[in-house]
């Protein structure tokens, strides 16, 4: 394992922020794995630290694919992680809206540019991403619907779903999009959790990446996950929003599946204690997203379901 500082930023009073990459094997730039870009992406950083730990042992056993190299960057933003803030500590900008970056520009543009220079040229790029609204997700791999997308390769992660997403205007400045423009096949992996560690989820996501690495020949050894992925377009997902604001009391079952008409939650008026809304599943399917908080605003997205 080689440790390399990819970009360094000096601060007025804090220790310098060194963005480190951990490199395994030698030869063709095979896979680059990027962890957190936001300060609340604790689970994403944790998964990468597990991968580094595992790949170090894999390398010691001589099981990195011959002539291939893998780089893992656990975090691009330790300054924000350090203070528990999602975006950049001073100007609140998002590093994942700054790609491909600009070396002479503003701070987060410089970070993006500095890192992007080091992570170009890899055949595959994996990013542990998170959604801006808090909540629990069904673990999945997401790819953008561009001319470069490759759903078949995305299936090699052996996660239950490969979700195809139509790019939104802001997507053109994300790492995933720019990786693709620069000829790296890019995949965004969404873990169940974001701002706290869920060990079994982390183990599952780690095994998914190791399975992928094995299938493309970047590592040797055993596959960890088995099973076929279903490719779905997120435009087919069914959203459930709150019609009322108030206490949100989830009544979800533990299976991850919902039946049409099944009661999912109630919203209680926070002053009178009356149930102001009962929420039922509009269709049968797999639960993709669930709202985590105890209080909801009117209009909040509470559930998203992948319909059967």
């Amino acid at each position: 394992m080689k440790e390399q500082i990819l970009f360094s930023l000096k601060s007025l009073y804090r220790e310098s922020m060194d963005i480190k990459g951990y490199i395994f094997g030698e030869g063709e730039k095979s896979v680059c794995i990027v962890g957190s870009m936001r300060g609340n992406e604790v689970q994403q950083t944790y998964i990468c630290s597990r991968l580094i730990h595992t790949l170090k042992k894999t390398e010691e056993r001589g099981e990195i694919g011959k002539g291939k190299s893998i780089m893992v960057i656990p975090s691009l933003n330790t300054y924000s992680i350090n203070i528990g803030k999602r975006f950049w500590p001073t100007d609140n900008t998002d590093i994942n809206r700054m790609f491909p970056g600009y070396g002479l520009g503003e701070t987060t543009q410089r970070i993006a540019a500095g890192v992007f220079e080091s992570i170009q040229g890899y055949k595959y790029g994996i990013q542990f991403a998170s959604f801006y609204i808090p909540g629990k997700f069904l673990p999945h791999v997401k790819i953008m619907q561009t001319e470069y997308m490759d759903a078949e390769t995305a299936k090699l992660f052996a996660l239950p779903y490969v979700v195809i997403r139509n790019p939104r205007p802001y997507d053109t400045t994300t790492l995933n999009y720019n990786w693709q423009i620069w000829n790296t096949k890019a995949f965004s992996l969404y873990a169940k959790q974001t701002n706290a560690i869920d060990v079994s989820d982390a183990e599952y996501m780690e095994n998914s990446v190791l399975t992928f690495l094995h299938k493309i020949g970047a590592i040797e050894g055993e596959e960890r996950l088995f099973g076929a992925s279903v490719v779905v377009n997120d435009s087919s997902f069914v959203s459930v929003h709150a019609k009322k604001g108030g206490f949100f009391l989830s009544e979800l079952n533990d299976s991850g599946f919902v039946r049409e008409g099944e009661k999912l939650a109630v919203i209680v008026d926070p002053l009178s204690g009356e149930v102001s809304e009962k929420i039922f599943a509009p269709c049968k399917g797999r639960l993709y997203y669930s709202f985590p908080s105890s209080m909801t605003h009117q209009g909040t997205l509470l559930f998203r379901i992948i319909p059967d």
Binding site: F87, N92, R97, Y132, P169, S239, H241, H297, T300
Partner: peptide, 20 residues
């Protein structure tokens, strides 16, 4: 949401409340 509203347009009828 700690979200810059001027990076959410044109929004989405079916998305999170900020997108709506």
């Amino acid at each position: 949401f700690d979200l810059d509203m001027n990076r959410t347009f044109p929004g989405s009828k079916d998305g999170a409340v900020t997108e709506q």
